[in-house]
Write a protein that binds this DNA or RNA. Structure first.
Lengths: 120, 120
DNA sequence: TTCTATGCCGAATCTTTTTTCGGTTATTGT
DNA sequence: ACAATAACCGAAAAAAGATTCGGCATAGAA
């Protein structure tokens, strides 16, 4: 796996939390699993602009840090399913609030974003 | 400013929110301002491993998206102070929960992190 | 048998973000 | 006058993160 070059400090809660779910896709993946979309291909399809590879990689990280569990039946067309662990579930309320807050301000942010694109 | 090459979609709340405060430093900066650390140099000093340049850049983005305001008195030793806007304040409860959650699981995460470093 | 789908992985490449380094302006203290 | 500090900014470089591409294996369907 990838070896960091700069040291990180996990001294404040914010950094710790961001380490676990601060990526571009992690919260979306957790959200999908929470909604019952539990297989890699399905998760990939449910998240626009995502590639399957990145979903796999992020799932591996979520797995490593114990936010999700993997249940692979080793038969048939290899039906792998992921599910949230207790740790994963313990941050769902935060996820819900982030999502809600984002939705509240979605239009405003899109406007501001456009301003940036215009001047560029 | 930097011009993106890949399109983003701001179609789900999660993405919108992460666009505003999803960087490596933004939440820490908001936290600092909320704690009364309001000047760039002070913010920089309060966040370990941060460079002044990145604080300035992130402040500019927070400013653009209206999470903070700048109050620069154009006199004396240029006492610039940043403060949270209403929008900025509206996400403080999320910030507090993220921080809390991260602190709760800090030791666990550090352990898992070490495992990664050892195998590398 | 051949094609398709799934799950996974390695490696090269590209994009984005962060850092480093240098500079400008203006004020304060010596 | 001179050093120190603050706020900023631009640009090159480095680092981190994401994507593309190819591959492997398994199994079901055509």
């Amino acid at each position: 796996m990838y070896k960091r070059k700069m040291e990180e400090d996990l001294d404040c809660g914010i950094r710790v939390a961001l380490k676990l779910f601060g990526g571009k896709w992690k919260l979306c993946i957790i959200d999908a699993i929470n909604k019952g979309i539990v297989r890699p291909v399905e998760i990939h399809k449910s998240i626009s602009n995502s590639t399957l590879r990145v979903i796999e990689m992020q799932l591996a990280e979520l797995l490593h840090f114990g936010l999700v569990d993997k249940c692979a039946e080793d038969v048939y067309p290899k039906k792998t399913a992921y599910q949230l662990t207790e740790l994963g579930e313990s941050m769902l309320h935060i996820l819900a609030q982030i999502d809600h807050w984002g939705n509240e301000h979605s239009d405003y942010v899109k406007e501001k974003q456009q301003l940036l694109e215009e001047e560029a």
